[in-house]
């Protein structure tokens, strides 16, 4: 730290990086690790996770294949109904999908409004025009993505993450992949807290404003330290696994049991999917 930087008055502020890391940490904890909704009593919470995973994949295929807006809208409405009967707060569920939609899918869909050839829907200044075909293309994209995201969010909100991972076995996802995903999930939390602690520790010892170069140097040093810590941690975790009999090919086990309700749900969802695919193939874009 330079002498001048030490004497500069300190303004109460939070650095962009600290703020971002803190937000990422908070959001991840809320979105992945908080299992409040998954512990509620509701329809989807009482269904076998394997049924939910299979149903979600089937419905995602139906959404992707559908050439009918009405079918996609129908499936979206189905997600709302399922959310409602599964104690998922509606405003939270809808906002979670639609707040991010303009930033991600909207940016991709926007050019389609203008560049897709077709009959004019709206004439704009400077010779620009929105075509009917372009509007339909953008609408299809937005609805497909929002319905698909809603289905995925519904699964994650109503199922503990651990059960989601185990249920992937029903799709014949290899055990080693499930194990790695599970460990990633578990250690992201630890590393996020380590990063937060590192930045708080730095903050408690910085007595002035740092120059951009000094900030960059400290961030690079922190990144290096974190990498070193995570490497050490991964080595120790591997030893702990070896110590308990791990030989490079993991064995996992689920304790799921199919009940009458689960079979009924599975059959119902597959029927809905079949009908949606058939109806969707009748429509035209």
């Amino acid at each position: 730290m330079s002498a001048t930087s030490e004497t500069k008055p300190v303004k109460k502020r939070q650095g962009v990086i600290e703020h971002t890391l803190s937000d990422i940490s908070h959001t991840l904890e809320q979105s992945i690790f908080a299992e409040d909704i998954a512990r509620q009593r509701g329809l989807l919470q009482s269904i076998d996770p394997r049924v939910k995973v299979l149903s979600m994949v089937a419905l995602l295929i139906a959404v992707g294949l559908s050439r009918s807006l009405a079918v996609i809208i129908g499936l979206y409405l189905l997600t709302l109904v399922l959310a409602r009967v599964s104690a998922v707060p509606m405003s939270f569920f809808i906002k979670r999908v639609w707040l991010f939609m303009p930033f991600f899918t909207g940016i991709i869909a926007l050019p389609a409004l203008f560049i897709t050839p077709g009959p004019t829907l709206v004439q704009l200044p400077l010779g620009l025009m929105i075509t009917r075909t372009g509007a339909m293309t953008a609408l299809f994209l937005l609805l497909r993505v929002s319905t698909s995201v809603s289905l995925a969010i519904l699964l994650v909100l109503t199922t503990p993450w651990n059960s989601v991972l185990k249920a992937l076995g029903v799709l014949h996802v290899p055990d080693v992949f499930v194990l790695i995903l599970g460990m990633t999930y578990r250690y992201i939390y630890l590393l996020l807290h380590t990063v937060n602690d590192m930045f708080l520790s730095r903050k408690s010892r910085v007595m002035g404003r740092l120059s951009g170069a000094e900030e960059r140097r400290l961030i690079a040093a922190s990144a290096g330290t974190l990498l070193g810590k995570s490497l050490h941690l991964s080595g120790e975790v591997y030893l702990a696994m070896q110590s308990r009999g791990f030989r490079g090919y993991p064995r996992t086990m689920d304790t799921f049991k199919m009940r009458a309700l689960d079979w009924a749900c599975l059959i119902g969802m597959l029927l809905v999917t079949g009908i949606a695919i058939w109806l969707g193939s009748q429509g035209t874009q």
Binding site: G182, M183, L233
Partner: peptide, 18 residues
């Protein structure tokens, strides 16, 4: 270091399974 599984049950079951 020792608790690498996503749930307590999985953690305790790890060794017997391996």
């Amino acid at each position: 270091v020792q608790l690498f599984s996503p749930s307590v049950w999985d953690e305790v079951a790890f060794a017997p399974l391996q």
